[in-house]
Design a protein around this nucleic acid. Structure first.
Length: 823
RNA sequence: GCCUGGAUGGCGGAAUAGGCAGACGCAGGGGACUUAAAAUCCCCCGGUGGCAACACCGUGCCGGUUCAAGUCCGGCUCUAGGCACCA
C-alpha cells in the first residue's frame, strides 16, 4: 500500500489478480446455500452507458455482499446480441453483422472488467453464437411440439422503416418501439407463440411474486387485461348468421339500441352483399383499412360508422336493432361485434349521438341524473329500470341473473376475455435465430430434426433493407429436404424476435457450456429461481412477461423446477442529466469511460450508488463525483495511517474510556445499519452515508490522547470490509495494506455486538405542548414510571414547568417527555 | 379518461413502527496549515426578527385525527411513468 491513492495502478492490479485466481467462478455446491444474482444482460450497442454502470453496480454490491455472507453466489453476464442495429450497421458499412457485434462485445467486456464487476465469465452467454441459438431453436421446437407455436395469416403490425413485423408489445403509441415510425397493417403469414394459453396463469401467479414491485405487477395485470362477461347471440333478421357479442354488462341489454360490427369481420361480406348500402359499406371498409392504428385508436377522434341495411334481434325483448359497421370495434377482441348501449357506455353514447340513435337508460344510479336528457353515459351501480321482469334488481346482481337466463335459453355463455394477444415472433430480418421450420408441399410445416440443429444463419446473403428477409437471397439456405418425407422442401426464411433469446438466458447461465442440452435440469434446479433480478423498468411488460411465459412452458415440459423465474425484482431508476434522460440527441451524455479514466471505477461506482436510492431516478452531478473521489482519498489516507500505526496489533481490546464506548458504539451501529440497508432495503445510499459517519468518527477518535489501538485496528478492518462490495479495488488494496493476503471477497461480512449498542444514558427530548424545550441525558432501561419521575425531577424541567398547570404527561422511555400545560 | 408512484433547504437526498425535520454528501461561508495557491484538517450553514438568550414560521395546497403528523384520514394541485375505442 502506497502513501498516495493511485486508482489506475490499484484497479489494474486487482482486476488482474481476480482474473488470475478466477475468483468469481462458481460451481454447484449442495453444502452451501445458493444465491442467484442477475442483472439484465446488455445489448452490445458499442459502449456502456451510465444506465449500465448503475444496473451492474447495484448487482455487484448484492453479489459480493451475499458471497461475504456465506452464500454460493451465481453472478453471470452475457450479451443479448441479435437484433436490428447490427444489421443496419452492416447495410451501412457493407460488413457482416457478426463483425460489428463481436467487436462491440469485446469492447463492452473490457469496460465491464474495468468496472471490477464480480462476474463468472466462464458462464458468459451470447445469443448470436451457434452454441446459444442452437438451443433457442431446440426450445422453439419443443414449443411447436406442444402445440404452442403456429403459423397463421393475419393483419399484423408492420414497421415500414425496420421493414419487419412487430409484436403488439413492441408497438408503442401506434409507433415502432425502436425507430418510432408509424406502424401500419399488413396481412402476412407469420409464426405465433400461444402465450394466450398461459394468460390465466400469468395473471394468477403475479400473486406469488411478493418480491416484485406492485407497479410492475399492476402493469402486467393491465396488459393481460382479463375481463369476465357473457357472450350473447343475437338473431339476424333475414339471415342465419349468429350475431354473437361479448359484453361485461349484460345487465344493460334492454338498453341496446343498435349493434356494431368491426369492418374486418369475416361476416361482413355476406351481411352487406346485395344491400342497397353495399357500395357505401365497401367504401367505409376501404377507408378503415387505410388508416394506421394511431389514427384509428385515437380516443379524440369522432366516431365513424356506416349502416349495413341489416337488422338484428335482441334476444332479451325481440326488438329489431340496426347493424352498423364501425371501426371503433376491434376485430381482435371479444367477438368483433358489440351491442350498442349508449346510456351506459360512453363510446356507444358518442356513436348514438352522431347517428341519431335512441338512448334508453336501464340502470338508475339514484343520484338524480336526468335520464331523459343524458349528456354522457352513466357507468355507476344502480337499480334496473326499463328491463321488464328485471326491474328493481340491483344491476350488479342482474348481470348474473340475466346472464344465466340467456345461458339457460341457449343464447348465451359465460366467457373470459383477455387483452393479451398471441405473441407474433416472425421477423423479416437476417440477424436473429432462424426459425427451424421447413415447408413441404406434401407434409406441410415440419420442424427441423433436432440432431440437425443448429439451422445455421447463411453467410451468402445480401443486405438490401427491403421487405423480405435477407435470408431469402441466400442460394444455399432455402432449398432443403423435408424432415418427414425426404422430398424437396423449403426453409422458413424469417428469424425470431430477439425477445425469445432473452426469455431463457438466465437458464443457460446455469449450465452455459453444455453442448448436449440447452441446460442440465439438475443444474437449473440448483440455481433457479433467480433470487434477485435487477434491471430497468422499461422491461416491465415485454421481457418480464415473456420470461415468465417461457419459464412456465419449460416447467410444464419438466425442464425446470420453478414456474416463476424471478423471485425478487428491483427496477432501477434512470440516470438523468439536467433533469432529462441522457441521450445523444440532447447532447447531455456523460460517458463512463471519461469518469473512469479521470477518477477510477471505484469512484464511479461509489457516486452512482450514493447519489440516490436504486429505484429512483438519479441526477448526474459532476461535483458529486468529485465528492465521492474525495471520500475515497480520505478513507485511503486514514487506512494508510492505521496500517502503519497498528501494524502487528491484533484487533483485540477492552472498551474502557468514554471515547472508546463512543467509537465502539458507532462501529457496531454502522455494521448494523450497513448490513440492514444492503440486505433489507437495497438502500446503498444510506449504507454509504453510515460508513461516512464511521470514517468521521475515526478521524475524531484517532487524534485523542488516549487511544485504544486494538479498537482502532478492529474498526479499520471492519471499515475496509464494509466498503469492499461498493468499491472493491481500493478495498483490496487497503486490506492488503493491513497485512492480509486473502481477498476481501472471501472474508466473512463483519458482525456487530448487540451489547455495544446499549448505551448507559440516552439524550431525550422534553416538550411542552409538543414543542421541544429541553434535552436531558437519562439512564436507559427505565420503566415508564421511573422514566417519567426522573424527567419530572430534573431541575431544568422543574424550571420549565414553574407556575404552569399540568394537564397531562406523556412519557416515552428513552425517547421523550411531553407535558401538556395550561397558562 | 383510468392505473401506479412522487413532491422535504441553493442542490442530491435522510428520517425503517406517529415521537428532536433536514442524517450523509455537494455547493457556499469562516478558521488552521502554507511565502502563496491547491490539497488537507476543523467549524458554521432552512426562513424571518433579535446584539443576544430566544421567539415565530417551515416537509406542494386546504381541512381533519392526535399530547405529538413529512409520516395516518378526507379533499385538491402539480409532476413522472404505464395503459388507453378491450365492449
Amino acid at each position: 500500500m502506497k502513501e498516495q491513492y493511485n486508482f489506475r495502478e490499484i484497479e489494474k492490479k486487482w482486476q488482474g489478480f481476480w482474473a488470475e485466481k478466477d475468483l468469481f467462478a462458481v460451481t454447484e455446491d449442495e453444502n452451501k446455500e445458493k444465491y442467484y444474482c442477475l442483472e439484465m444482460f446488455p445489448y452490445p450497442s458499442g459502449k456502456l452507458h451510465m444506465g449500465h454502470v448503475r444496473n451492474y453496480s447495484i448487482g455487484d454490491v448484492v453479489a459480493r455482499f451475499k458471497t461475504m455472507n456465506g452464500f454460493n453466489v451465481l453472478h453471470p453476464i452475457g450479451f443479448d446480441s441479435f437484433g436490428l442495429p447490427a444489421e443496419n450497421a452492416a447495410i451501412k458499412n457493407g460488413s457482416h453483422p457478426a463483425v460489428w457485434t463481436s467487436s462491440n462485445i469485446a469492447e463492452m467486456e473490457d469496460q465491464l472488467r474495468e468496472l471490477g464487476f464480480s462476474y463468472d465469465w466462464d458462464r458468459e452467454a451470447c445469443t448470436y453464437k451457434e452454441d446459444y441459438y442452437r438451443w433457442m431453436q431446440w426450445i422453439f421446437i419443443q414449443f411447436y411440439k406442444k402445440g404452442l407455436a403456429y403459423k397463421k395469416e393475419n393483419p399484423v403490425n408492420w414497421c415500414p422503416s425496420c421493414q419487419t413485423v412487430l409484436a403488439n408489445e413492441q408497438v408503442v403509441d401506434g409507433k415502432c418501439e425502436r425507430c418510432k415510425s408509424e406502424v401500419t397493417k399488413k396481412k402476412l403469414s407469420q409464426w405465433y407463440l400461444k402465450i394466450t394459453d398461459y394468460a390465466d396463469r400469468l395473471l394468477t401467479d403475479l400473486g406469488k411474486l411478493e418480491g416484485w414491485p406492485d407497479k410492475v405487477k399492476t402493469m402486467q395485470r393491465n396488459w393481460i387485461g382479463k375481463s369476465t362477461g357473457y357472450e350473447v347471440t343475437y338473431g339476424l333478421k333475414d339471415g342465419d348468421l349468429p350475431m354473437t357479442v361479448f359484453t361485461t354488462r349484460v345487465d344493460t341489454i334492454y338498453g341496446a339500441t343498435f349493434m356494431v360490427i368491426s369492418p374486418e369481420h369475416p361476416y361482413v361480406e355476406e351481411l352487406i352483399k346485395g344491400q342497397k348500402e353495399e357500395a357505401a359499406c365497401r367504401e367505409y371498409i376501404e377507408q378503415a383499412k387505410k388508416q394506421s392504428d394511431i389514427e384509428r385508436t385515437s380516443t379524440t377522434k369522432e366516431k365513424t360508422g356506416q349502416f349495413t341495411g341489416r337488422y338484428v334481434i335482441n334476444p332479451a325483448n325481440g326488438k329489431e336493432l340496426p347493424l352498423y359497421l364501425a371501426d371503433y370495434v376491434l376485430m381482435g377482441y371479444g367477438t368483433g361485434i358489440v351491442m350498442g348501449v349508449p346510456a351506459h357506455d360512453q363510446r356507444d353514447f358518442d356513436f348514438a349521438k352522431k347517428f341519431n340513435l335512441p338512448i334508453i337508460p336501464v340502470v338508475d344510479c339514484g343520484d338524480g341524473t336526468d335520464y331523459e336528457h343524458l349528456e354522457a353515459a352513466v357507468a355507476a351501480e344502480g337499480t334496473m329500470i326499463n328491463s321488464e321482469q328485471f326491474n328493481g334488481l340491483n344491476n350488479i346482481k342482474a348481470i348474473q341473473v340475466i346472464g344465466d337466463s340467456f345461458v339457460e335459453r341457449g343464447v348465451g355463455k359465460k366467457t373470459i376475455n383477455f387483452k393479451l394477444r398471441d405473441w407474433l415472433i416472425s421477423r423479416q430480418r437476417y440477424w436473429g435465430t432462424p426459425i427451424p421450420m421447413i415447408y413441404c408441399e406434401k407434409c406441410g410445416w415440419q420442424p427441423e430434426k433436432e440432431e440437425n440443429l443448429p439451422v445455421l444463419l447463411p453467410t451468402d446473403v445480401e443486405f438490401t433493407g427491403k421487405g423480405e428477409s435477407p435470408i431469402a437471397t441466400s442460394k444455399t439456405f432455402v432449398d432443403t429436404k423435408c424432415p418427414c418425407c425426404g422430398g424437396a422442401a423449403k426453409r422458413e426464411v424469417d428469424t425470431m424476435d430477439t425477445f425469445l433469446d432473452s426469455s431463457w438466458y438466465f437458464l443457460r447461465y446455469c449450465d452455459a457450456k453444455n453442448d448436449k442440452m440447452a441446460f442440465d435440469p439438475k443444474k437449473a434446479a440448483y440455481w433457479m429461481d433467480v433470487d434477485q433480478y435487477i434491471g430497468g423498468v422499461e422491461h416491465a411488460i415485454l421481457h418480464l412477461l415473456y420470461s415468465r411465459f417461457f419459464t412456465k412452458v419449460l416447467y410444464d415440459l419438466g425442464l425446470v423446477n420453478v414456474d416463476e423465474p424471478f423471485k425478487n425484482l428491483l427496477t432501477q431508476g434512470m440516470v438523468l442529466k439536467d433533469g432529462s434522460k441522457m441521450s445523444k440527441s440532447l447532447g447531455n451524455v456523460v460517458s463512463p469511460e471519461e469518469i473512469i479514466s479521470k477518477y477510477g471505477a471505484d469512484t464511479a461506482r461509489m457516486f452512482i450508488l450514493f447519489a440516490a436510492p436504486p429505484e429512483k431516478e438519479l441526477e448526474w452531478s459532476d461535483t458529486g463525483v468529485e465528492g465521492s473521489y474525495k471520500f475515497l482519498n480520505r478513507v485511503y489516507r486514514l487506512v494508510y495511517e492505521m496500517a502503519e500505526d497498528t501494524k502487528g496489533i491484533p484487533a483485540v481490546y477492552k472498551v474502557e474510556t468514554k471515547d472508546d464506548k463512543q467509537l465502539s458504539f458507532v462501529l457496531n451501529n454502522t455494521v448494523k445499519r450497513v448490513t440492514e440497508d444492503i440486505s433489507n432495503r437495497f438502500n446503498f445510499n444510506t449504507a454509504i452515508s453510515a460508513i461516512m459517519e464511521l470514517v468521521n468518527e475515526l478521524y475524531r477518535y484517532k487524534e485523542l490522547e488516549d487511544v485504544n489501538m486494538g479498537l482502532l485496528r478492529d474498526a479499520t478492518e471492519k471499515l475496509v470490509l464494509m466498503l469492499s462490495p461498493f468499491v472493491p479495488h481500493i478495498a483490496e488494496e487497503m486490506w492488503e495494506g493491513l497485512g492480509f493476503t486473502e481477498s476481501t471477497y472471501h472474508q466473512a461480512w463483519p458482525k456487530y455486538d448487540e451489547t455495544q449498542l446499549v448505551k448507559d444514558t440516552v439524550e431525550i427530548v422534553v416538550q411542552l405542548n409538543g414543542k421541544v424545550k429541553a434535552k436531558l441525558d437519562v439512564a436507559t432501561g427505565l420503566s415508564k414510571e421511573e422514566f417519567e419521575k426522573t424527567c419530572m425531577d430534573d431541575e431544568n424541567v422543574k424550571a420549565l414547568l414553574a407556575g404552569k398547570e399540568i394537564v397531562k404527561v406523556i412519557a416515552v422511555p428513552g425517547k421523550l417527555l411531553n407535558v401538556v400545560v395550561k397558562g
